[in-house]
Design a protein around this nucleic acid. Sequence first.
DNA 1: CAAACAGTAAACCATGTGGTTTACTGTTTG
DNA 2: CAAACAGTAAACCACATGGTTTACTGTTTG
Lengths: 110, 110
Amino acid sequence: MTTSADERLDLVFGALADRTRRRMLAQLASAPASITELAAPHNMSLPGASKHVRVLEHAGLVRRTIDGRVHRCTLDLAAMRTADDWLAHYRAFWDHTLDALTDYVREDPR
Amino acid sequence: MTTSADERLDLVFGALADRTRRRMLAQLASAPASITELAAPHNMSLPGASKHVRVLEHAGLVRRTIDGRVHRCTLDLAAMRTADDWLAHYRAFWDHTLDALTDYVREDPR
DNA sequence: CAAACAGTAAACCATGTGGTTTACTGTTTG
DNA sequence: CAAACAGTAAACCACATGGTTTACTGTTTG
């Protein structure tokens, strides 16, 4: 199951492409939560929330530990970096082109 | 058409969640390209590439200027920042928790 | 132990996605 | 001007997605 970089990025960006899941991540950033607690703010059925958590878990953004009948979900920061590292490449790129643009405007102000 | 922050993030992350589109962006980072030129590296039909470009354009990641019969596509860095800014929030967060973890390990090494 | 609770499984629905082919519009060029 | 070219439109396909409801498993608790 050698998950390629492309596969990981597909999963992470795909997981982030839904506002409900992004809000769940925000919630988990402040404290771990159960599935029920994650469902509550979204007036969403439990199976609905369960599916979102599975997507987040599959993308590696959330880990789950089962304690009796309650599933405790926590943020996984490592997976968040996968997306960040990809974007970092472009961050450097756009900083550079901003510089290039500045130089251009300075040297050739007509 | 007041595109909300959530809507913009949905579109940007959704656009980034496909490896073909990510490769197109990488190609555009080195030079602007036509639809045909974007299709070429992926053995993809022209309509296929056209749809991908439309997704990227709709997400604000690509701009297009039409010159005769050829469409010139260029990267739009501003939209890339939308995703980066969202992630930046978590970047700070995980740096902080790494620090917190380090402190914890130092102060309580049992 | 019975009832309430946390969660998953499965079936279902509408809509979106990634891709094709075939047909068309409009532009460039021999 | 006819032929080649760049691209879009539309119809189609298989499959994924976001959501529901209904039924189930297993755990906690009065």
